[in-house]
């Protein structure tokens, strides 16, 4: 596999037109993720209702095609989901990118998110693919109304 194979059509399309690329004014949880090495810098906004369902989601900021498309696919994958399902999907995604232990069952849950599997072969880019997911993790663990900061180093 060469670097070119990483940039599949879906990644390129989500990079060009990221979904849910917006700031949520009425967010209940906000997290800020920065990759100091390359300057990728994103905010994630969640609006979680009383039933712990992610009612709305947004992200904004700047970064490379891998980080931005990963953030975009994240938002469209977890919108409308229970926070525990979102958290589980996050674990599956991070496992897929950072280890060889991803099971078939886990890959089925991830669905189209598995297009990022190839990033595993590019250690320096793994942090790009996981940045917004790490921010999600931090947002889910945060208290309502607080903005958390994470840095992938």
């Amino acid at each position: 596999m060469t670097g070119r194979d990483l940039y599949q059509d879906m990644i390129m399309s989500h990079n060009k037109k990221p979904r849910n690329f917006k700031k949520l004014e009425d967010a209940t949880h906000i997290a800020h993720g920065v990759n100091p090495l390359c300057g990728d810098d994103f905010y994630i906004y969640l609006k979680v209702n009383e039933d712990n369902i992610i009612e709305d989601i947004g992200f904004d900021g700047s970064g490379c095609a891998i980080s931005k498309s990963s953030g975009s696919l994240l938002t469209s994958s977890i919108i409308g989901k229970h926070i525990s399902d979102a958290s589980e999907l996050k674990d599956c995604f991070i496992e897929l990118i950072t280890s060889d232990n991803s099971t078939e069952e886990s890959k089925q849950k991830l669905g189209k998110l598995t297009i990022f599997e190839g990033v595993k072969d590019y250690p320096i880019r793994v942090k790009c693919a996981t940045l917004v997911w790490r921010a999600l993790e931090s947002a889910l663990e945060s208290k309502v109304g607080e903005t958390t900061e994470i840095s992938t180093e």
Binding site: T2, C38, C128
Partner: peptide, 13 residues
């Protein structure tokens, strides 16, 4: 339109 890290990875290919 391309981030320097994407340029780096693609140049490598």
């Amino acid at each position: 339109n391309a981030h320097p890290h994407d340029i780096g990875t693609l140049c490598d290919s």
